[in-house]
């Protein structure tokens, strides 16, 4: 087991945003977290990365309890992430952004630079290596964040809405990139709004609604789950959908 969350709960005052959610991932898995806005998936995600500490429950990384560790401690232990709103180092070049990630495993600038170029090659940003990160558009920044995270040589990569704000073509390119990364043996957790992305990538999906995990399974299973349809579309649409499925000969 590479990453495991056991009964993770996060409350802000009287508000319970994540309520006893558990997941477990083996090496090479892709886990999708989906749910309507405000369902708690980002909060849960941040409990995994260390940006938030769970109120109760545990997060286990490679057999070690990291529940109360800071993001930098978890990064050292092989966890890397991207941000929903890109958080690039705006005044630094694309290459330097990625070098910051690479410096986690070496203190030698020449080696960090070499590693950064390798990763930039993988994500297709080599041509803009010397451009200032602030000059990139949203798709470029999202790619840069993934590159920066990969440069830390993680065992698990957590992507927070890496496709949000992209056009259909860009989403397809981004999906290709995630596939490519997965083929290198990477374990992935992806938070996503776009169903197309989840269905084409994730092997296992957890659906959040109002802080609770309401469904879990393959993408095909959860999209047919009445509770999921209700959460997304409301009761009446769910009833219609159920009739639709009933009449379907398949």
């Amino acid at each position: 087991m590479l990453l495991e969350a056991i009964d993770v709960t996060k409350t802000f005052g009287a508000l319970t945003v994540v309520n006893t959610v558990s997941v477990s991932l083996n090496k090479g898995d892709i886990l999708g977290l989906i749910g309507p806005n405000g369902a708690g998936k980002s909060t849960f995600f941040n409990c995994l990365t260390g940006d938030l500490m769970p109120t109760s429950g545990r997060v286990i990384l490679n057999g070690e309890d990291v529940s109360m560790m800071t993001p930098e401690q978890r990064a050292v232990r092989g966890l890397a992430r991207s941000f929903q709103v890109p958080q690039t180092f705006e005044t630094m070049s694309v290459l330097e952004n990625v070098m910051i990630g690479a410096f986690l495993r070496t203190s030698d600038p020449a080696r960090a630079r070499r590693r950064a170029y390798e990763v930039l090659d993988l994500v297709g940003l080599v041509d803009v290596a010397s451009a200032v990160a602030g000059s990139l558009g949203t798709p470029g920044r999202k790619r840069l964040e993934i590159a920066r995270a990969l440069a830390t040589d993680p065992e698990i990569l957590l992507l927070d809405e890496a496709m949000a704000g992209l056009t259909a073509t860009e989403v397809r390119q981004a999906i290709e990139l995630v596939r490519k990364i997965h083929q290198t043996g990477m374990t992935l957790v992806i938070v996503e709004h776009i169903m197309e992305v989840i269905i084409s990538l994730a092997q296992q999906v957890i659906v959040f609604h109002q802080g609770h995990q309401i469904a879990r399974g393959t993408p095909q299973e959860v999209t047919r789950d009445p509770a999921v349809v209700t959460a997304y579309l409301g009761k009446r649409a769910a009833a219609n959908a159920a009739r639709g499925f009933a009449g379907d000969p398949a």
Binding site: D51, A75, F89
Partner: peptide, 17 residues
């Protein structure tokens, strides 16, 4: 490099260890 990263975006820097 680290100091400039912290100056630009401390949260992102911490996420990279």
């Amino acid at each position: 490099f680290y100091l400039r990263a912290i100056k630009d975006n401390e949260r992102a820097a911490r996420s990279l260890g």
